[in-house]
Structures are given as C-alpha cells and as structure tokens.
Amino acid sequence: MEKLCRYETDRVGYVMVLPYIIFFLIFVGYPLFFSFILVFHKWNIISPMKFAGLYNFNFLLHDPLFWKSLRNTLIFLIIHIPLQIIVALVIANILNQKIIARGFFRASFFLPVVISGVVITILWQQFYSFETGLFNTILSRIGMTKIPWLINTKFAMPSIAIMATWKNVGLYIVLFLAGLQAIPSSIYEAADVDGATARQKFFYITIPMLNPTMIMVLILSTLGGFSLFIEPYVMTGGGPINSTLSCVLYIYKQAFYFNHMGYAATLAFTVAFIIMIVVIIQRKLFETEVYA
C-alpha cells in the first residue's frame, strides 16, 4: 500500500528541494527584501540605519556621476555590440565552410573566453600603455602618431570596449556557429533552385534564421556592458576624469570606498531596473518569429 501511494506524491521530493528553499530564502529572498529596505535608508554599516524616505532616489536623479556611468555604459555598448556581432558573424560563416583543422581554429578564437578577465586586462594594459605599449610601439615603427589609448577621456572607454570584444567574441562565434548549423540545408537548396545569389542567401535566409542567436548575443552583451567592473578597476580606476566609470564600479566605490550602503543599494536597484527595461525593449524591437 505504501508503495502505491508513493506514485501519487513523492514525499522525498520535499526533502530534495529543501536545500534549495533554504538557500533561496537566505541568499536570494532575504537580500532582495533587504535591498527594498536599504534604498529608503542612509547607512554607513557601523552606526544604526537612518530612515531617509526618497532621499536616495532624489540624490540619484541629481548625481552627475550616476548619469556619467550610464553614459559610459552606453558608449561601451554602442561600440561593443555591433563590433561583436559583425566579427563573430564573419568568422562563424568562415568556420561553417568545409575547412581543414576547423577544431583548431575554433579553439583558438575561444581561448580568451576561458581566461580570467584579470589576466586579459593586465595583458592589454601593457598593449595600451602610451610610452612602452605594444600598440604604440607598432604605430611609431610604421611612422604613425601614438594613440592615447587609456589616458584620453575620448579614447579610454572605446579602448576597453575593443578589449572586451576581443575577449568575448569567441563565445559568440561558437553560438553563431551552432545557429548556422541548425539552419536546414533544404532552405538553401530551394534558394539555389530559384537562382539566388550568395549575397541574397546570406541576407534573406541566414540573417533571419539566426534571429534567436542574434537576440541571445544582444542580451548577453548588454548584460556584460552593465556588469563591466574589473577592466576599468584594473586599467584606469574609472578615470581619466571618470570617463571609464562603469555602473558596477560606481556601485562598488559608493559601497566600499565611501560606506554609503543605502545609496549604493539604490544605485544597484536602479541599474537592475534599467537592465530589465533595456532587455525587454531589445526583445520587443528585434525578436521575430522564425519559421523552420
């Protein structure tokens, strides 16, 4: 009888999900709840919390550094996303042909993805160094003027965006490659019968059929931009003149340099809200139905 009942409700299921429920309550639920409280308080973590109403949000609206960090993220995304998609798409298309040693090429493009951002940043900091950096050494060798990669407010954020593209593009190559291989060859064969050119096939079959991958790349890059932290932390400390101050770096500074816990939580809360809005807008704008 006991055995039969088991198939109705598996009580052991509760035992098995119990660790998750405890984990969720402590490390997700409580922090979420507490962040709702924190945003209405002033708190330096040592003395008691002081209720401040909407002070933090009001301060945020008039905080030039908050807007600056958003603008910097926007600059990062405007360079990073198109560059990422174009490079990844081109290389994925090349790797999708019948070529020798495809595994080797794929593994090479993927190498920077698995290596810590800390390593990449330290390496590129040398490349970008004004006097002795590799890039400027090459530039002056071929008779061009040196570029102030990290020490000019106009160049610093684009430099970081280029480095981030170099680090991440391998992942997107692999994602596009998987997307390309999922397109049924019968569609291309049908297009061949109708006399379509390679160009037409690319723009009228490949691009539309890759839409789900494209959305994924778009969203992952956006999340990456809003999570940018260690690159400016190591390379520039957010400078010159806050031109590489990213959202997370600003939250980190407010929380751990100035001990403004309430305000840092408010910043984080607002940034998280903006991320969700941006992702929803991106989906609305770019997601199309794919018929396969």
Partner: peptide, 21 residues
Amino acid sequence: MVILFTMMIPFQITLIPLYVL
C-alpha cells in the same frame, strides 16, 4: 517558476545586501 525568476534577477541588486548579510 521561482528558479526561473531568480535567473532573471541582475546580480547587481543582491550584491550590497548579500555583503551586509
């Protein structure tokens, strides 16, 4: 559903309260 929901929460929002915890 709760698990799906937690995956959509940006980590930024829990960073500070988690540190406080």
